[in-house]
Amino acid sequence: MKKWMIYGANGYTGELIAREAVRRGMSPVLGGRSAKKIQALAEELSLNFQAFPLDEHAAEQLEEIDLVLHCAGPFQLTSEPMIQACLSSKTHYLDITGEVSVFEHTHFLHTQAVERAIILCSGVGFDIVPTDCIALKLKEELPDAVNLALGFDSDSGVSPGTFKTMIQGLGSGSMHRKEGILETVPLGKQQRTIDFGRGSRSAMGIPWGDVSTAFYTTGIPNISTWIPLPKSQIYSARLVGSTGQLLATDWVKQKLQKLVEQKVTGPDHKNRASSPAYIWGEAINHEGVKKVARIQTANVYDLTIYSSLEIVRRLLIEKIEGGYYTPAGLFGSSLIEGLPGSGSFELDTFYPS
């Protein structure tokens, strides 16, 4: 029987995943930095636990672990030491990040993963499974696409971990990919109107993880990522962007993160159940032919539970060549359609007049 670990199981999303894993009859080892917090949850769920920091000795804690699902953010700070531990112990590595820098770093380690015969796959949650799958679906529908836009619309609340990740990225602006190269864009500069699935709305470009991963999934050279926002909030975001240097200071980030720890608890079950997500994508080729795809999914946190556990399940039973993968690169565009709460892709084609 293969052993796997949820590291960061005492966090909001990690705990949700752990509880659902047990409900499905799975038996992960719970891991984290706080022995007190991890032990309490492990005893409640009748699971084994290991408490250890992500330092130079972390690999020793993974010697008998076949796969780690890393849920302890901010991933910009925690992913690199965990990946190094997994490379040393020959342990498959998954995480639920949405951070562009983490995706780029994980991709950079492809050769090492091949040599160690392990899978490295960042973003096995809402960040970025549904958008990665819709990107691949559009590539399949329009193989010669040169422009790709992706986005989502959801009324979901925000967990403490997500807030901390957002704070960590303050001052960095937005981002897109142009002719295969990642470029920073001032926050609020990218604006357009999009129908994500609930009617046309004003939208703003954001530095979502797909500007990294969708390029590796599809090879499409120009990629942007979007969320709906009222025009007044887009204007406010542009003003916030102009104060980026202040927001980027460690002092400001530390103050904001302490507030999150004190004030933010994350959306409850009722909120999650009533807040589905609407995923949208658009691909265009040189001739101006446009393909648009949409799909409705479960709430962003519930989808993270479902997608991460499905990818864990498959990797524990399937033999796949080692290396870096995106979620859709591992299991195809149909991965999202098979998850609880997901519909089927809806596709439209538009031709230039």
Rank of each mutant, 00 (worst) to 15 (best):
K2N: 15
K3H: 09
I6F: 08
G8Y: 08
G8M: 06
A9G: 00
R19E: 11
R19A: 11
V22T: 06
S27L: 08
P28L: 05
G32V: 01
K36T: 08
A40V: 04
A40K: 05
A42G: 13
E44A: 15
N48F: 07
F49G: 06
A51D: 00
F52T: 01
F52Y: 15
D55V: 05
E56A: 15
E56W: 02
E63W: 09
I65G: 09
I65C: 12
H70P: 07
C71L: 05
F75H: 13
F75G: 09
Q76V: 10
T78A: 09
P81F: 13
Q84I: 07
C86S: 07
L87Q: 05
S88M: 09
T91F: 04
I96G: 11
G98R: 14
G98Q: 12
F103T: 00
F108I: 01
Q112K: 12
Q112I: 05
E115T: 09
I118V: 14
I118L: 13
G123Y: 09
G125H: 04
D127T: 06
V129R: 11
I134A: 07
E140S: 02
L142S: 08
D144L: 15
A145V: 10
A145N: 07
N147E: 14
L148R: 13
L150D: 00
G151T: 14
S156H: 06
G161T: 01
G161I: 01
F163Q: 06
T165I: 02
L170W: 02
K178F: 02
I181D: 03
Q191H: 08
R201V: 03
G205I: 15
P207N: 03
V211P: 01
V211F: 14
A214K: 08
T217P: 00
N222W: 10
S224M: 12
L229A: 15
L229M: 11
P230E: 15
Q233H: 06
I234R: 10
I234S: 05
S236E: 00
A237I: 06
L239N: 01
T243G: 09
Q245F: 13
A248Y: 11
W251C: 15
W251P: 00
W251T: 14
K255N: 10
L259I: 09
T265V: 11
H269D: 08
H269L: 04
K270Y: 05
P276W: 15
Y278M: 02
I279F: 08
W280E: 03
G281L: 02
N285D: 13
E287P: 00
K290R: 13
A293F: 07
I295E: 13
I295A: 04
T297Q: 11
T297G: 12
V300E: 03
D302L: 11
L303Q: 00
I305T: 03
Y306D: 11
S307K: 01
L309H: 04
E318S: 03
G322E: 05
Y324I: 10
Y324G: 00
P327L: 09
L330D: 01
G332M: 11
P340F: 12
G343E: 06
T349R: 14
P352I: 14
